[in-house]
Design a protein around this nucleic acid. Structure first.
Lengths: 338, 338
DNA sequence: GCGCGCGAGGCAAGCGCTTTCCTGGGAGCG
DNA sequence: CGCTCCCAGGAAAGCGCTTGCCTCGCGCGC
């Protein structure tokens, strides 16, 4: 691997001069020397060692992103927003998948700090786990104390800049819509109980039901993996326990797709027999059959805002932005059959 | 930001000793000193500067990945495979999205080289652009010459380790299946013409047709964006130019989903009026309606193999692995209507 | 009791780069 | 013709860490 010293030697100049030419320093360098350096760079295929540069000139430019899983469409969209802003501002992104493992999340914060990233964006639901939350907050605080910037998406457990999707409001929208359609027997297909996002969405849903004097008993909520297969499994459970359901609320679209698949396999027609609602409005929501009624979250915008918060100097106090949820009515919901 | 020197000072030892404790060096350190160091680390929330470490101990451990777009399900799956192996071997991944921009691809190779990554994995179709290919090969060669490892997925334009999905064979499978079903009027909804993947898949398809003495005229192929909307647009074009089509082949599943949506909006029944075939077998392929007949590519495995090639020492000569394609018949294909 | 061996810990060099500060030579002025 | 000023270019000091090598002190053997 060619070094700056090699370039300098080959060009017959000092490393200082070579460095100045390569970085376009403000200090003037004679035309001839500049040419010689440039030629040497080309000949040797020289690429500066980024680590050495970072050591010598502590100018953090990389941003770390911790998400649950980039291949999950939810995070794929959020990441797209993060990327857009980062690229626009000339920042490189290091993307880390925690796969919903709190321990891994902690490790990644450490790792990103070691990488001297300029900012860390933490995307995805928090956990109902006080010990973990404390630990994480401590690590983030330590990082912020040394000049790092932190922004979180969808977690209220961190004190600092945050952008929050309106999870509870979204749940409420679903509840009101189902009530309006005459549904009284409602089941919920939920992701892992430990995620605060799940709790928030459920809370909103329950609030809407309570508005009409109804409630959602615990046995009408099934927790499973936040995935298509989890959705199918939970729906099967739900059906078995409460055969009279007229509506199934899935707490994300992947689970809703699983629910749809399971219902179809049982010959239950949607929405004639059972209505199905999703959450998130992932890109494919409109393409399944029947097209999924769901709550749209501005996923890309979530990323855009979070990265902006992370990159714009904190003007002192913590900033929290809430992005609205919106009901998107498609073909998977209809009037209650009973 | 606390440094090793701070830790050493606080623990009352030399930086050398502190370093040895922190890295678990083989050199023995007295129990008491070790404790003092560890306590200082905790007190100061010390995290070693990864860049300084990399400089001092040139032990590359990060791997760079360049994909077209992680949020595209194809790459999401491939990346999952890459991740799995990388994590297993204790490697951090830097994921870069080129968004199918050759220039950006070149820049990223440079950037990853500057980051001193241990290996670069380049995933995604190559381009029909000789100048670019030469340039890229040159850069990769320069990188390999300095001890870097390179593995590519789905590009035959790079000489070195590669894992190739059987694109042409997949195209052939589609062609044969459609012929078997009696289709003679076939249209193709293709992604960007400049991608070698497109050419390969088309070549396979044409080969199958040629086997029966048929051909695929150029006007039966529409090139568009490799996305859902691109698929819808291209399908509309195709229909307008050749109303008598009995089958539409989309060269990836996203485009197929777009095709399905457009056909539905026109009241054309699939597969009764027109059959639709996709390519890749993305996770949602089974969940659209009708469930998509497509060619399954072992996407995760593609990633797994590529990362393995990248991390296992090159035993001399370039290794090329081809992973098979497989036809998955679902509900979007049927006998030709005519 | 003296010398040697051994092992724990520290010194310092060096990884590749940037940047401050200094040097030396040329130009301009008196 | 000599002095000063200015400026291009270089020397060198780090950035934070690792590690080979040396030192020093102890314990043991003769």
């Amino acid at each position: 691997m060619a070094t700056l010293a090699d370039v300098a030697r080959r060009a017959g100049v000092s490393p200082a001069t070579a460095s100045r030419v390569i970085n376009g320093s403000s200090k003037p360098v004679a035309e001839e020397l500049r040419d010689r350096v440039l030629r040497a760079v080309a000949d040797l295929r020289y690429v500066p060692n980024a680590h050495a540069q970072l050591l010598a000139r502590p100018q953090r430019s990389v941003v770390g992103v911790i998400v649950h899983d980039v291949s999950d469409p939810y995070f794929a969209e959020v990441t797209r927003g993060l990327q857009r802003v980062a690229t626009q501002r000339g920042r490189l992104l290091i993307i880390c998948n925690s796969y919903r493992d709190p321990v891994r999340e902690l490790e990644y914060v450490e790792l990103l700090r070691a990488q001297q990233v300029a900012a860390i964006v933490l995307a995805g639901s928090g956990y109902h786990d006080a010990a973990f939350t404390t630990l994480l907050n401590e690590k983030l605080a330590a990082y912020e104390a040394t000049g790092g910037r932190v922004a979180v998406i969808g977690r209220h457990d961190h004190f600092g800049d945050a952008v929050m999707p309106a999870n509870a409001a979204g749940g409420e929208l679903i509840g009101r819509e189902l009530l309006r359609l005459g549904h009284r027997e409602i089941g919920v297909v939920a992701g892992p109980r430990v995620l605060t996002t799940i709790t928030d969405r459920l809370t909103g849903l329950r609030r809407a039901l309570a508005g009409e004097g109804r409630e959602l008993p615990e046995e009408r909520v099934r927790y499973a993996d936040f995935s298509r297969d989890g959705g199918a499994r939970a729906t099967a459970d739900l059906l078995e326990a409460s055969p009279g359901l007229t509506a199934v609320v899935a707490l994300n679209d992947s689970m809703a797709v699983g629910a749809l698949a399971l219902l179809r396999s049982r010959g239950i027609l949607v929405p004639r027999d059972v209505s199905v609602v999703g959450f998130d409005d992932m890109p494919i929501a409109a393409d399944v059959t029947p097209a999924l009624t769901t709550v749209r979250l501005p996923l890309v915008e979530l990323g855009v805002r979070a990265m902006s918060l992370a990159l714009d100097p904190a003007d002192g106090r913590p900033r929290v932005e809430t992005l609205p949820a919106e009901l998107v009515s498609r073909d998977s919901t209809g009037r209650a059959s009973a």
